[in-house]
Every structure is written in C-alpha cells, then in structure tokens.
Design a protein around this nucleic acid. Structure first.
Lengths: 212, 212
DNA sequence: GCTTATGTAGACAGACCTGTCTACATAAAG
DNA sequence: CTTTATGTAGACAGGTCTGTCTACATAAGC
C-alpha cells in the first residue's frame, strides 16, 4: 500500500521537558499524517525520547490521541477567537450589521492559507477512527459547539443568533473539507463560503426589517 | 490502540463471480471501517475468496481502493440524481421556484438516515490517506463536481446556477460531516442545512426580483 | 539518606499488514 | 488437445504496529 505520507522529519528541541516534546511531535504528526497513520515509533524519534518515557506519561496511544485533541482544541479555538475579534475590531461599525460574517471569512482565509493546513483535526480524527472511540467523538462535539459559540459573538445577541451561528458553522465545515482535498481548493472554497454567509446575513436582515 | 471497529462480518453469496464478491466486500468494509483500517485479510474472508484471487484481479490494495471509489461514485451519484428527480417531481410546480432546494434537503435526510451512514466516502478517504495518493484526490474532485452539477439541475439554468449549486454543495458537505460525527447529529445537521439552503434561495429570488 | 519521579538504551512479544510463492483444479477458447 | 483464465489452500517473507520488559542513571523532595 501507499507508504506513510512524506512529511519532513523534525526534532523537538532538547531544552523542553520530555512530555512537552512528545506532545509537540504528536500534535504535528497526528495532524499532518493522521492519528492512525502515525506510529508511536515516529513520535519517539521526533520527540527525542524513548518508548518507556512515552508510556510513562501516557498509558496508551489512545490516551495520547485524546490529549492531542484536547490541546489542539485549546490552541485552535484561542487562535480562532482572536482572529475573529481582530477582524471585527478592524471592521467599520456600519459593516458589522450588514456583513457580520466578514471576520469569519477572513479567519477562514487565513487558516486555509497556513502552510500545514490539512483540514479540521477533529473531522479528520472522526473520519479515521470513526465513532467507535467515544472520546474522539466527544471532543469533536465539544469543539464544534465552541466554534458555533465563537461565531455567535459576531451576531446581535437575539434569539436567532444561535441558529444562524450554527448554520455558519456547517458552512465553514463544508468549506474546510473542500479546501482540504486541495483541488481548485482555497479560492473556490472561500467563494462558496462567502456566498453562503452573505445569503445568511441577508435573510437575517430581511427578517428583522420585515418584523420590526 | 483501539481495535478495528466492530462492524458485523458477513459473507458475499457464492453465486457471484469472485471479482464481484471482492468488490462488494471491499465496498462495505472500506466505507464502514475506512480504507486504511480495513485489511486485505478481512476482505478475502468476507468475499469468500483467497488472497491469490484478489491479487490476480487487483495489482495492489491501492488499486482496489481506486476501483472501490470509482464504483462508489457511480452508485452513489445515480442514487442521488434519482432521489433529487423523484423529490422534484413530487414538488408542486409553484414550489420549484420558491424552494428549489427542497429535493436536496429530502435527499440529504434520506441519506443521513440510512442504516450504515458514515459520511462521505470521498471526504473520508481523503482524510485517511491524505492528498498523498493523487488517485484518491482526483476521484474525490470529480465526485464533487458531479454533485454540484446534479444540484444545479434543481435551479433555473441562468449564469448564477453554477455558483449557487456550488455553495449548496459546500453546505451539504458541512451537514454531512456533522451528521457523521453522530452527536445531536441528523436532525441538527438538517436544520442547519435547511437554513443555509433557504437563505441561498431567498437571495437568488431577491436578486431576480431586483433586476427583472 | 532514602524515596520517588523522570529519564536513558534497546530487546522482546504478539499481533497485523501487504504482497509473493508453490502446487493443484477446472473450464472455456482456440 | 492445448493454452489461458480463473479458481482453491495455505505457507512464507519482511515489514510495522502497540505495548512490556530489564537494567541503569540522575535529580528533587522529605
């Protein structure tokens, strides 16, 4: 079968504690190659530790995967919130009502264009190990909820915000999945995403106009 | 690590030719467990053939995967087109302009509720083996294009149809990915999808109204 | 000073993976 | 009749996988 994806090997700096080196190597390899395709041996090589050290910190590979996903969630969502906040702060206040999703679009562009972009770590993990590992499914669900909540902060806090933010989350997921497969990719995905988000915002304005 | 997903074992009927039995077993196992997680040994067991027979029909597992994806595409897209056509035929003609995406929504519901539903086979394959296997990425791209074209048949054939259909395709992808992770899942995904599609249709009507 | 945590090196078990091999059987096509 | 395609059974090579093992080293905390 096709051999392991050829992601360049690196080595975590020896100054960091072993546990941290393990987690950094795992984060990089699990994301770029997939959790199933990445063996413990590759992780110990790039973390610069021995197998005993890994298994003293993490009872099993499944546990390491769970910690990886937890950390990935923390760092990613922090980045995402900040990207949204920054883009929103730069937005003229008039545009915030007319184009509430512009910051999301900007964040998505930034994300898709990152060098090591390979889609959503959580969607990928679910695709790889399936819903058979409940930990993975659980973390993925929590992740998606928090993404929706972060998106909701772009919207006026009325009773429709949650549903709109949820729809926008699905739109983002679709764009991510498409950008990942890397065909016409980033630009086409962003165009589709913009269409969806603008339509969503337009409908919300129409409703508010029609009601109020 | 977590063992192979526990999908029930079956056996293809011996009346079929060996090649067909292999492909049917592969289709089922690759889709349900993933292409990477499924070993040739499991396939030969459930197809009721020997390893030599497999390797006489398919030079390598990668080739088998490619043929699997090709077949999966053919059968899925045929089902999809028919589901759209049937739902559209059942639609009152007045609704076809106001709610052009209703057939898509119906097809999505039907799909998500199928017993063995585990998301998009092509997105999953890309997530598993990455873009490192060009065959997989290529088939996935072709698949997505044809999905878009099928969706476009729901729309009046003007110059905006392609873009709208593309946006709808992304929305569908997002809903699929979410339904796959199986949390609040099918119903929530469909609700988000409906919101996106209705917004899209509304914007198109508004544009036509504003112009014509 | 003694215990506990953390680290090293590398062998090993037991499983599963893809892919090849020998040797034999059957049946259709030329 | 002979060649070619298709099938069977099962051993085998060579690799990778997770996880355990022994044996030793160092440093911090009580």
């Amino acid at each position: 079968m096709t051999p392991d994806p050829s992601v360049p090997s690196t080595r975590e700096p020896a100054s960091l504690p072993a546990r941290e080196r393990i987690l950094r190597a795992a984060e990089r390899l699990f994301y770029l190659n997939g959790v199933r395709a990445t063996g413990i041996d590759r992780i110990i090589a790039e973390a610069g530790v021995t197998k005993v050290t890994v298994y003293r910190h993490f009872p099993s590979k499944d546990d390491l995967i769970a910690v990886y996903l937890d950390r990935r969630h923390e760092t990613w969502i922090a980045w995402f919130k900040e990207a949204l906040a920054k883009a929103r702060a730069a937005q003229p206040s008039a545009a915030r009502n007319a184009h509430p999703f512009d910051p999301l679009l900007q964040a998505a562009r930034e994300w898709f264009e990152q060098p090591g972009f390979r889609g959503c770590a959580f969607a990928n993990a679910v695709a790889e190990v399936g819903a058979t590992v409940p930990t993975v499914a659980g973390i993925a669900a929590r992740h998606k909820t928090e993404v929706r909540d972060a998106i909701a902060t772009l919207l006026p806090a009325d009773e429709t915000a949650r549903d709109m933010a949820w729809a926008a989350t699905l739109a983002l997921d679709g764009a991510v999945a498409n950008a990942q497969s890397g065909i016409g990719s980033a630009e086409a995905s962003l165009k589709g995403l913009r269409d969806l988000l603008e339509a969503l915002a337009l409908r919300a304005r129409a409703r508010r106009g029609g009601r109020g």
